[in-house]
Design a protein around this nucleic acid. Structure first.
Lengths: 250, 250
DNA sequence: CGTTTACGGTTTACAGCGTTTACTTTTCTG
DNA sequence: CAGAAAAGTAAACGCTGTAAACCGTAAACG
């Protein structure tokens, strides 16, 4: 029997981390405050014990935010994969709708991940440094859409210097490596798309807009629809809008 | 000598409210936590005394958020009025840049006003119910731009039902009354614009984007530039972009 | 004008928070 | 088996929001 590389203690520790996250999310889903003490109590141990796992409160928050983001991303991926592999546009739509619905349904989790003063610096917590994985799931679909539709994108030398740098050498290593250097303008299009998606959803979640518009989802639909042409999806708009509305209703 | 309508006590009370807000903003600007006790201490009184002015902590937050928004809006208006009255597009640009610079320079104030689960319900605090006044300063400029450039806007019957309702009978009474019923589609364009502006700025403030792009302001410029055509400003883009960049640098 | 009311403040107190320190128990390891 | 390391506890500190009881004084009223 092949003994696990990891020691028994290490596995136990990992399990405890999982339980911390589970307890935290339970609090977030309910109406309880997400506090160190509450998490500890829910796990049946005292507050100081948690300091064996997280350095301080902010560290707990960062941990939970990271894991929540990872889990949410997985549901976005699942939503996308209801569409055939050769329909990246449909997949993007489904992932986007899933993102919105998740955000509106779990505003506190959304706020934790996407409206925190960014999990700064020392967030080399667990696994690799893949912060905001969801923000980068979408990159893939945009790339796939490009290989299928070949929408136009700026060349490197028509990009502003600061932008050129950041698309050539992205800080957060998404799956950008497979994009040829001369096509890195695609990353700029991706950033534009992310801005659009994040913008509407944040606006809706924080409620800075007529509730009736939020509830109807029309601003969301409108935003996606307006962005579609930049991905060469003009001809697909009717189909995609129908898909989007179906997904919003379901 | 004409005696003030308001009684002496009422004036004193008003002054105390002002001091509460002033103390709170002082804490927000520094690195101190915005707590009831800290505010009280800064004013030289005990914490329970504050309960004569605000019902609870959240109420204090709402009060401060409201006043911060009002004050910020005034600076946006000032920035706009550096441009001649017959150049509403220039004014909108300046107000928008001022909004972004304020948000990036005062992230905690921005968070308070624009990333709170909305000052809900009982926020009929002081003055009229003009919540998020800044969100509606921009309405005016969009209207002025329309009277000058006559950009196209959707008619009422091509709007989705939910949207039509909300543009006909807006929840937050902006200066919408002067817009003729058949031109209420303008309000939809306004909402779209607000979504764009809020979107980039929130994204930048919360840092969910490459820092180099944020620092350069290119995504902000890009977003505004992309939206300009919808306001019939195609021909003005070079001029407006120059103005925008000058304001961003200043 | 004097009485009454209500406003604006205090003191004291409580529960809950993040965090530190010192101590104990469990568990792995040489 | 001995020793070290890890995991947990109890007690305590200073902070928070909030409630209760209390008091002087300024305003309002008959």
């Amino acid at each position: 029997m092949v003994q696990d590389q990891t020691t028994r203690r290490a596995r136990q520790r990992e399990a405890t981390y999982d339980e911390i996250v589970r307890a935290s999310r339970q609090l977030l889903a309910g109406d309880g405050e997400l506090s160190l003490r509450a998490v500890a109590a829910l796990m049946g141990l005292t507050a100081p014990a948690l300091y064996r796992y997280v350095a301080n409160y902010q560290d707990l928050i960062d941990l939970v935010a990271f894991e929540v983001d990872k889990a949410a991303t997985e549901t976005f991926r699942l939503a996308a994969e209801t569409q055939p592999e050769d329909d990246p546009a449909g997949r993007l739509i489904c992932a986007s709708v899933a993102f919105r619905q998740w955000a509106l349904g779990n505003p506190r989790e959304f706020g934790l991940v996407f409206a925190n003063p960014i999990a700064d610096a020392g967030c080399i917590r667990r696994e690799t440094i893949t912060l905001s994985s969801s923000g980068h799931l979408f990159t893939d679909y945009l790339y796939d859409i490009w290989t299928k539709y070949h929408y136009p994108h700026p060349s490197l030398d028509e990009l502003p210097a600061a932008v050129r740098e950041s698309v050539q050498d992205p800080l957060i290593p998404a799956k950008v490596e497979r994009i040829a250097p001369e096509d890195r303008g695609l990353v700029w299009v991706y950033m534009q798309g992310w801005t659009q998606l994040y913008g509407v959803v944040a606006l809706e979640v924080f409620g800075h807009m007529d509730p009736r518009v939020i509830e109807s989802g029309e601003m969301f639909v409108d935003t996606i629809r307006n962005f579609a042409p930049r991905l060469g999806l003009d001809a697909e708009i009717p189909r995609l809008e129908a898909l989007m509305r179906a997904r919003l209703a379901g």
